[in-house]
Design a protein around this nucleic acid. Structure first.
Length: 567
RNA sequence: GCCCCCGUAGCUCAGUGGAUAGAGCAUCCCCCUCCUAAGGGGAGGGUCACACGUUCGAUUCGUGUCGGGGGCACCA
C-alpha cells in the first residue's frame, strides 16, 4: 500500500525525520528538557522562491531556547544528517528554513504518475471503512432546482473524494414522502385534475403552481404508468381516490427527479423513503426506545423529548397533540437506522436552512443511548445559489413556476460547466451562478480553461505519435527550466491536495488546484516547444506533459467533469 | 431577541498564526509564417468591513460593532 503513497508524502516524512534529529540535538545541547514533544511544521511555501518545503521550526524553538531564531536555524542546518533529497537550504526572513529539493527528487514524480495512472493521488486513509454520503434528498414535490444542484455537485464530489481516500462509499438519497407537503402536492394535482386553474380562488392556497402539476394531472387522467427506482405505478384516473393521486404524483415526481439526476450524471446506491420507516415500524421503535431512555415527558397532550439534556436550547415535541409525529422523529429513526447499517461515518450534505436540525438529530441519537458518537453524523451545509443572466437575477422557470430548475441549467450550459460551477466554491459561502460565464467558450470560463489544457496535451502527444509506454525509460534530467520546475512541484502536491480536500470536506480545493495546474501548463506551452529535434529533451518534455495530462484527468474526474482529448 | 454562514482589488472569488495577501474577469500595453490564441507575457488596481484583545508575529484566533444571507412551530 505504501506504493500508493506519493513520493511527496514519503519525502515529507523523510524531511520531518531529519529535522527532528537536528532539533533534538540542539535542544539537548541547550539543556531544555521541557521541550520533550516536538511538532515539526513542514509546509509548502506560497512562493516558489522559498523552495519546495519550509519550516518554522527555528521560530517555534526561539522562545524555549531563548535564542535568536536565525541562529537556531543555522544550528539546525548544521545538524541535518546527510541525505540525497535536499539540494540546498537557506535561512530566510525571521528564521524560516527553506529546503530546495534536488532535481532528481523533483523529477521522480513524473514516473510515479505515469506508473500509477488513474491511481495517482489516491490513498488508503479510509481503510475501506463504510461511509455514507447523503445528499440532494429533495422532497418529491417538484423538479430539482439550482439549490439541489449545488447539493448534488458537492455531495457527489465528496463521495468521489472519500472514495479516492480509500473509504467504502455509499451514496444515498432520502425522500420525505410522508409529510404535509405531500398532502399539499396531492390536493394541487387533484385541483388540476378537476380543471381548476391556479388563479382560481378555489385552487389550494399554498398549492404548487408550476406547470409540471398540470403534466402530472394530465398523466393521471390518462392512466399512464411511471417507474421510479424499484416501484412502478399506474394511474387509476379516479379523481375521488386521494391515495391513488398521491401515490401516482409522488412516483411521477420521483421519476422526474431521476431524470434530473441522470442529466447531471449522478448515481445513487440507495434511495430511502420516509414512508418505509413508518411501514417497517422503525419510527415506532425509535419512539419507544426514547421513552424507555427516560428523556421524554408528556405536556399539553403532547410527547416531548428533553433535547436540552444534549445541548439544544429548548425541548422538542415528538408527538403532537393530534397524535402525529413531528418530522424530526422519523429523522432520528432514519439516522439510527444508518448507524445500525454499519456506517462508521455519515456525511449529510444539505442546504443551510437545515442548520437547526443538526442539534436535534444528534440529541435524539444521544438520547437513544446506543453508543453513537456525540458528533455523529457530520454535516456539510451549502449556502444559497442565485442565478444571473445578462446581469440580472433569474428567478423563474416556466416548468417549475417559482425557481430555476437544475435541468434548465444543464440544458443551457452543459453538465460539465454546471457541475464545475456548483462545486468550485466553498460550500459555506453564497454562490452566484453566472449563466453567461458558464456558457462562455473563452478563457473567461475556468472549466474550458482546464479542459483545454488537457486537450492541448493530448493533441501534442497524438502528433508526436510515439509510444507513451517508453516514457518509463526516459532520462528526465533535461527538465530544468522554471516552467518545468513549477510543473513538477505542482504535480507532486496533488496527493496532498486530494487528502486535504477529503479531510476538510472541501471539494472546491480540487477545482482551485486544477486551475493552477492548467495555468502552469498553458504558460509552459506558450514558452516551449515539445516536438523538437533534440530527442532527449523532447522525450523528457513529453513525459512531463503526459504526466500533467494524467493529473488533470484524475482531478477532473474527482469533480465529475470530463477530460476531453479534443476541443 | 437568539443561533449559523459570509464580508479580501471595480466585479466573481481563492488563501493563510508568519516572509512582498493571490487568481480570473473588467481597463491599458504586448505575443500566432511555428505543437489548438478556448492560449501566453506585462501594467495599473487593497485600510483583508470596523474596533479592541491574545501573540515575538493577526487578514487568519477571541470578544464586540456594523453590513449581507439563512434559521429560530405541536411545518417538513
Amino acid at each position: 500500500m505504501l506504493f500508493l503513497l506519493s513520493c511527496e508524502f514519503v519525502l515529507k516524512a523523510h524531511l520531518t525525520q531529519l529535522l527532528a534529529i537536528a532539533a533534538k540535538t540542539i535542544v539537548q545541547n541547550n539543556g531544555a528538557p521541557e521541550v520533550a514533544e516536538l511538532t515539526i511544521l513542514l509546509e509548502r511555501p506560497k512562493s516558489a522562491e522559498h523552495g519546495d518545503f519550509a519550516t518554522n521550526l527555528a521560530l517555534v524553538l526561539a522562545k524555549p531556547l531563548k535564542q535568536n531564531p536565525r541562529a537556531i536555524a543555522a544550528h539546525i542546518i548544521a545538524n541535518l544528517p546527510a541525505n540525497d533529497y535536499i539540494a540546498k537550504t537557506e535561512i530566510a526572513g525571521a528564521g524560516f528554513i527553506n529546503f530546495f529539493l534536488s532535481a532528481q527528487s523533483q523529477q521522480e514524480v513524473v514516473k510515479e504518475i505515469l506508473n500509477a495512472g488513474a491511481q495517482y493521488g489516491r490513498n488508503n486513509v479510509g481503510e475501506s471503512k463504510k461511509v455514507q454520503v447523503e445528499f440532494v434528498s429533495a422532497n418529491p414535490t417538484g423538479p430539482l432546482h439550482v439549490g439541489h444542484g449545488r447539493g448534488a455537485a458537492v455531495g457527489d464530489c465528496l463521495a468521489r473524494l472519500l472514495d479516492a481516500n480509500g473509504w467504502d462509499v455509499t451514496r444515498e438519497f432520502y425522500y420525505n414522502d410522508a409529510g404535509a407537503q405531500i398532502d399539499n402536492l396531492t390536493i394541487s394535482v387533484l385541483a388540476r385534475c378537476k380543471g381548476i386553474s391556479t388563479d382560481d380562488a378555489s385552487f389550494p392556497e399554498n398549492g404548487y403552481r408550476g406547470e409540471y402539476i398540470n403534466d402530472i394531472a394530465a398523466a393521471y387522467l390518462d392512466k399512464q404508468t411511471v417507474v421510479a427506482d424499484d416501484i412502478q405505478v399506474t394511474a387509476s384516473g379516479d379523481i375521488e381516490n386521494l391515495d391513488s393521486v398521491r401515490t401516482f404524483a409522488v412516483a411521477y415526481l420521483r421519476h422526474e427527479q431521476d431524470l434530473d439526476l441522470k442529466a447531471f450524471q449522478i448515481k445513487f446506491d440507495v434511495f430511502s423513503l420516509e414512508s418505509a420507516l413508518y411501514a417497517e415500524g422503525k419510527v415506532e421503535q425509535t419512539v419507544q426506545a426514547l421513552i424507555k431512555s427516560g428523556h421524554t415527558y408528556e405536556l399539553d397532550n403532547a410527547l416531548w423529548l428533553k433535547t436540552t439534556d444534549f445541548g439544544d436550547d429548548k425541548d422538542r415535541v415528538m408527538r403532537k397533540s393530534d397524535g402525529g409525529y413531528t418530522y424530526f422523529v422519523p429523522d432520528v429513526a432514519y439516522h439510527a437506522d444508518k448507524w445500525n447499517r454499519g456506517f462508521v461515518r455519515v456525511i449529510n450534505e444539505q442546504g443551510a436552512d437545515h442548520h437547526s436540525t443538526i442539534t436535534r438529530v444528534r440529541a435524539g441519537l444521544q438520547a437513544l443511548d446506543a453508543g453513537i458518537p456525540k458528533g455523529w453524523p457530520d454535516y456539510v451545509l451549502h449556502q444559497m445559489v442565485t442565478v444571473m443572466r445578462g446581469g440580472e437575477e433569474v428567478k423563474l422557470s416556466k416548468r417549475a413556476g417559482s425557481y430555476v430548475t437544475l435541468r434548465d441549467l444543464i440544458e443551457e450550459v452543459g453538465c460539465d460547466a454546471t457541475r464545475y460551477f456548483l462545486a468550485a466554491r466553498r460550500s459555506d459561502s453564497q454562490l452566484v451562478f453566472d449563466i453567461d460565464l458558464a456558457r462562455a467558450q473563452t478563457n473567461d470560463n475556468p472549466v474550458y480553461y482546464i479542459q483545454y489544457a488537457h486537450a492541448r496535451i493530448c493533441s501534442v502527444l497524438t502528433q508526436w505519435g510515439g509510444n507513451a509506454a517508453h516514457f518509463n525509460d526516459v532520462d528526465l534530467t533535461p527538465l530544468n527550466n522554471s516552467h518545468e520546475t513549477a510543473l513538477l512541484q505542482r504535480l507532486s502536491t496533488y496527493p496532498e491536495i486530494v487528502a486535504n480536500a477529503a479531510t476538510e470536506l472541501a471539494p472546491h480545493t480540487i477545482a482551485n488546484y486544477l486551475k493552477d495546474l492548467a495555468s502552469d501548463l498553458h504558460s509552459y506551452y506558450n514558452e516551449y516547444k515539445f516536438l523538437i529535434d533534440d530527442e532527449a529533451v523532447k522525450l523528457a518534455r513529453l513525459s512531463l506533459i503526459s504526466a500533467t495530462g494524467q493529473v488533470l484527468k484524475n482531478g477532473l474526474n474527482l469533480l465529475g467533469v470530463s477530460a476531453p482529448e479534443r476541443m
